[in-house]
Nucleic acid binder design. Structure first.
Lengths: 205, 205
DNA sequence: AAGAACAGAGAACAGTTGTTGACTGAATGG
DNA sequence: CCATTCAGTCAACAACTGTTCTCTGTTCTT
């Protein structure tokens, strides 16, 4: 069932994506709650009224952006935690992966960091939901590691949330780092991750 | 030199504060970048044009709000870290202190969490500056503790930043916690702090 | 007591905003 | 092939925005 979309739905999807892209670009230097409907349609090259064919409101568009922005992250999880090697190697690889993601999708990262506690409730909730799902996946990965032997489910989730929050924090810091200052931020993040990993190792003492 | 302010400056300071209060209230459900000048003056009960007697723009008002919001935090530092007792006691007291602060100044906390990565650059920078200063103070406090013997200045600052970021994170989480869910958030924060403290203890192994 | 300083009010400006209803033309499905 | 669906356009709406300039009344200074 390879459900080839009709020409109509293809074009609709294209302008929908154009709206999302235009919005993401405009959100480089403002927050979602100040993003105007007309502003977006102007940047996307369509009439203001056509906006309603795709979204009820800009908040609606924001929720769609959340899925798109955090969807590109899910592939990262497995790669990060499944990787072999010693502690320092794995940490370095994790930080590099985060840095690479920030370099590749800066607008997405900025959007998530900005709207995580932003002024639009449905968007905040959507981000929280995704990050929760994220933490759940990390917990599952952690549970499979030998270092987690004897850990309670609750404590594993606690650690997973700490890792996820630290990841988001690091990504945001990298984004706002001055040109050339990314190395320092990455070094800081590595040392912080090492401290957390040491804490993990001696948790059951 | 107790520099008693003239009646004029007193009244000016009052309406200035009224503007700040009105803005803070309006920022409960929107971000600074969407806050209108007229909206604020309307809520403060003055004419729109009088706004310019106090601030150049809403971004300017935002910067003033940062100082006011984070100023109420500086007293907290000494109290938190100087406190005696074992590790778990000190952690519990720290989290309680954060929770108390969030309950007392929810609007301030919300503002900082929201605008830390928000759409207004000068405000972002002001917050970053204050949090940096904050981390510096925490580092100084940490340096005075016996557990920090043998630590490099760099690593102390690394730990201080981790603590400060975790504090902000916890405050934001408490703010968005559902009624009655604050206890769970506090418990999570305590366990995470304990893990970081254990990592700290074994850092030099 | 006279004059300067100045916080705030008021009116007006050109633009902008979200949302409506009726309309067009191409893709769709029977 | 004909009727229907529907993405996108267009015009118009009342309401709102930041900023300017002019004016008023009180406070400050000398």
């Amino acid at each position: 069932m390879s459900h080839t979309l009709g020409k109509r739905q293809v074009q609709k999807e294209q302008t929908r994506q154009a709206l999302l892209d235009a919005a993401l670009a405009l959100l480089a230097d403002q927050s979602l709650s100040s993003l105007g409907l007309r502003e977006v349609t102007r940047a996307a090259g369509i009439a203001p009224t056509a906006f309603y064919r795709h979204f009820h409101s800009t908040a609606d568009l924001g929720v769609a952006l959340v899925d798109q922005a955090l969807g590109s992250l899910h592939e990262m999880i497995g790669t990060t935690l499944t990787a072999p090697g010693g502690m320092d190697e794995r940490i370095a690889r994790s930080v590099d992966l985060i840095a690479g993601h920030v370099r590749r999708y800066p607008a997405h990262v900025r959007f998530v960091a900005r709207e995580r506690h932003g002024g639009v409730q449905p968007v905040r909730e959507a981000i929280a939901r995704q990050l929760d799902r994220f933490a759940g996946e990390v917990r599952t990965e952690l549970a499979g590691q030998p270092e987690s032997h004897g850990w309670s489910e609750e404590d594993l989730l606690m650690l997973a949330r700490l890792y996820v929050d630290h990841m988001v924090m690091t990504a945001a810091a990298l984004l706002e780092a001055p040109p050339g200052g990314a190395g320092a931020v990455a070094g800081l993040a590595r040392r912080q991750m090492r401290l957390m990993s040491i804490g993990r190792r001696h948790w059951l003492d």
